[in-house]
Design a protein around this nucleic acid. Structure first.
Length: 411
DNA sequence: CGTATTTGACCTGCGC
DNA sequence: GCGCAGGTCAAATACG
């Protein structure tokens, strides 16, 4: 990949109607102003969730949440919200914690469980939508400070999106199992059902497919104040032609003309003095290369877990040396070692994205771990969707990735 | 001594 | 075909 294929997409307007199914969502959170620990940087993106309470973060990592997060739209159809799990992590200030345990005005979150969300026509769903309608614009104007777990989110448009490869959102939906429902479908809140699959089997494949998307850059969210530190990889079609083993195969073992699909890649930019960010996984460095037009080299890492093919590259931005650009490729086939270390988190073994994992059970009071086998957390996003599109296969115990922990965990 | 890192060589794809 | 840049390999080296 080139050193400059990441785009900081700020000051872009997002085309909800046309691009919703293509959003790879990023979000930013703003910490309470009275928490001095976040003085620099003032804006903080989701803290590395694999850190325990005792660990100081070496960096602040933009929080990235899965594509099937509960999406809400404001009444102007101009802002997209994500009903999101707690995102500030154990580093959250007491103020933020307390706010999480409160109900959003008009939306009684406390005491709600998965059934409240998955019921097609539940009153709670209506309440959520109503809340989004009522508060969306206000949250926009104030930068989403009110609720750390209800994230303000707006995504930029895709630069040069007119030239993108796919033909229409519909065709994309049918071709991929993990893409977004359309804007109108979300708003309609109708019925429908996703195919029932096992959590583990559907997880990685659907996200692979969702993420593999030719010839467009993944959009990134800008914060309410254009202060985003998140970036996503832009891929060229030419880069989709090999996998992690293809290039290293001896020539006589390569199948002539065989084109391989590259694993999806996700890039994040993080402001940090450290070159290598602790992300909960173990990596072995296998290469380093100078980057064109940059004084900083790029390092290549492979996940050390047996049979896991996830790779990452780390480099510093040539434009802003304070930024560390970490690009992940592939999906881990195993839980994070840090997650295992953190005991309860090991229950949530099917992480979505290598650097996006829930941690609420580590720090939220009065919470308890929930097994994936617990049917109460089988959140079927398909119940919100109406239409002829093939629905994403999403009922795989991802409720913890979609809902504020206080909803799920309160007993 | 086992494991991880370093680093130059090598491979591959792309553009000219 | 050639040069370039990204990516990977693997022997040498460093490290604990």
């Amino acid at each position: 990949m080139e050193g400059h294929q990441f785009q900081r997409a700020v000051n872009h307007e997002f085309d909800l109607e046309n691009d919703l199914d293509k959003i790879f969502q990023f979000s930013s959170a703003v910490v309470p102003s009275d928490d001095s620990r976040f003085d620099s940087p003032r804006k903080v993106f989701g803290r590395s969730p694999w850190l325990t309470d005792d660990e100081e973060p070496s960096c602040f990592v933009p929080h990235i949440f899965p594509a099937d997060s509960e999406m809400l739209l404001d009444n102007n159809s101009s802002n997209l919200f994500a009903l999101q799990r707690e995102i500030l992590g154990p580093f959250t200030s007491d103020l933020a914690r307390s706010s999480i345990t409160e109900d959003i005005p008009g939306v009684p979150f406390q005491g709600k469980n998965a059934a409240d969300f998955s019921s097609t026509n539940s009153s709670f769903q209506q309440q959520l939508l109503q809340f989004s309608n009522d508060h969306g614009q206000r949250l926009n104007q104030t930068g989403g400070l009110e609720r750390p777990d209800l994230l303000w989110l707006i995504s930029p448009s895709l630069p040069g999106s007119s030239g993108r490869a796919y033909t229409s959102p519909t065709s994309t939906m049918q071709a991929s199992s993990g893409v977004f429902p359309s804007f109108s479908e979300l708003l309609s809140g109708g019925g429908g059902s996703a195919a029932v699959t096992t959590p583990n089997s559907s997880l990685s494949s659907s996200f692979r497919e969702e993420a593999v998307d030719e010839e467009i850059s993944y959009p990134v969210a800008n914060s309410p104040h254009d202060h985003i530190n998140v970036s996503a990889s832009k891929r060229k079609a030419a880069e989709l032609t090999s996998d992690e083993n293809f290039a290293s195969m001896p020539n006589n073992k390569k199948q002539k003309g065989r084109k391989r699909i590259r694993e999806p890649r996700y890039a994040i930019q993080t402001r940090s003095d450290k070159d290598v960010l602790e992300d909960g996984y173990k990596w072995r460095k296998y290469g380093q290369k100078a980057v064109k037009n940059s004084p900083h080299p790029r390092s290549y890492y492979r996940c050390t877990y047996n049979k896991c093919s996830v790779k990452k590259t780390v480099e510093r931005s040539s434009e802003d040396p304070g930024l560390v650009i970490t690009t992940y490729e592939g999906v881990h086939v195993h839980p994070s070692p840090a997650a295992i270390r953190g005991s309860t988190e090991a229950l949530f073994i099917d992480s979505i994205i290598p650097f996006s994992r829930p941690v609420y059970s580590q720090f939220l009071p009065n919470t308890r771990p929930v097994s994936l086998a617990d049917p109460r957390i089988r959140f079927n996003v398909g119940t919100q969707i109406r239409g002829a599109h093939q629905l994403p296969q999403l009922d795989r115990g991802l409720l913890e990735d979609m809902l504020p922990s206080t909803i799920r965990m309160s007993t």
